[in-house]
């Protein structure tokens, strides 16, 4: 393997890592405010990808308009699941919430399966994203550069919201103590809804990037990607947005690197994230940047 090939793989890892990161942020933020593993999050990403597909292939919208449709639609769906399915269970035992989340996940997968069929649909990638860019001998599709760039911009925006706005402060406060948020005179339910909206919007963008890269969409795509993105959130430190991004990149790079350097283990590509998850739980359960949610409050 020469230097160029190596750089090529690095760019691939960066691109894949960005997608995991975008999805992992939603997991980590919901976990932060509700201590809930939102099993439906991966499927929201799938819905995002499908809305993009629907906008372009069926409604004949330009790419950017389809992205807007997807982001808005997914954010609304995320907020709707919170309002309809999770909010009535705030006082219920945790296990009810988790079961409902699994139910929503299975519902979304199968309703899309019934509507669009189980086979994968080709995603109409706009020509300018497939254009080959040549940087010092490195040939890449434009999308491989756009994905990390957009991710970094979005990450900047999220951090700005979290650290510079009143709602962002409320989100962070909610991760530690509900009472503080109530003292700030803000409705906790509203904050949780915003978190679902933000997380789902990011997942939709991650889903569209995924659809552009592989160029196809299918109803079950959210299951495995979602699982890996959750692993990324735990590896980085669940509850921390920065951690989710770091975890996303770690998982993305691991997959690319192992497949490139140890092709005989290529069949196990989908298992690496899981192995990393187990190792982190064993040796550093709070992850790389984690907050210790472990101690219960007496």
């Amino acid at each position: 393997m020469n230097f160029l090939e190596f750089m090529q793989q690095m760019v691939n890892g960066f691109s894949l890592g960005s997608m995991y990161a975008l999805i992992a942020i939603g997991y980590t933020m919901v976990y932060g405010v509700l201590r809930l593993i939102n099993f439906a999050h991966g499927d929201i990403m799938m819905v995002g990808a499908f809305l993009g597909y629907f906008g372009m292939a069926v409604l004949d919208l330009p790419f950017v308009a389809a992205v807007v449709l997807s982001v808005v639609g997914s954010a609304l769906l995320g907020m709707l699941t919170d309002k309809v399915a999770y909010r009535p269970l705030r006082e219920a035992p945790k296990i009810s919430l988790l079961i409902t989340a699994i139910g929503i996940s299975f519902f979304l997968e199968n309703i899309f399966n019934v509507i669009f069929g189980g086979t994968s649909k080709p995603f109409p990638v706009p020509a300018y994203m497939e254009e080959i860019v040549n940087i010092g001998g490195l040939t890449l599709p434009a999308s491989a550069l756009m994905v990390p760039a957009v991710t970094l911009v979005l990450l900047g925006a999220i951090l700005w919201v979290l650290y510079k706005t009143k709602y962002g402060m409320a989100i962070r406060a909610l991760a530690f103590d509900v009472n503080t948020v109530n003292l700030m005179g803000i409705d906790a339910n509203k904050i949780i809804m915003i978190v679902f909206g933000m997380g789902s919007a990011l997942a939709a963008i991650g889903g569209i990037f995924w659809a552009v890269n592989y160029p196809s969409v299918e109803p079950m795509m959210g299951v495995l990607i979602g699982l890996k993105a959750f692993a990324a959130a735990v590896v980085g430190g669940i509850g921390s947005v920065g951690g989710a991004v770091i975890g996303g990149f770690i998982i993305g790079f691991t997959e690319v690197v192992v497949v490139a350097f140890l092709p005989e283990y290529g069949g196990y590509k989908d298992a690496f994230a899981f192995v990393l998850l187990i190792l982190v739980l064993l040796f550093k359960p709070t992850g790389i940047l984690g907050i210790n949610f472990d101690k219960s409050r007496f």
Partner: peptide, 15 residues
């Protein structure tokens, strides 16, 4: 560890 990691780990285990 505390937390509902059993759910996600067993889900992954199936895969």
């Amino acid at each position: 560890v505390r937390g509902d990691y059993l759910a996600i780990v067993t889900l992954g285990f199936g895969f």
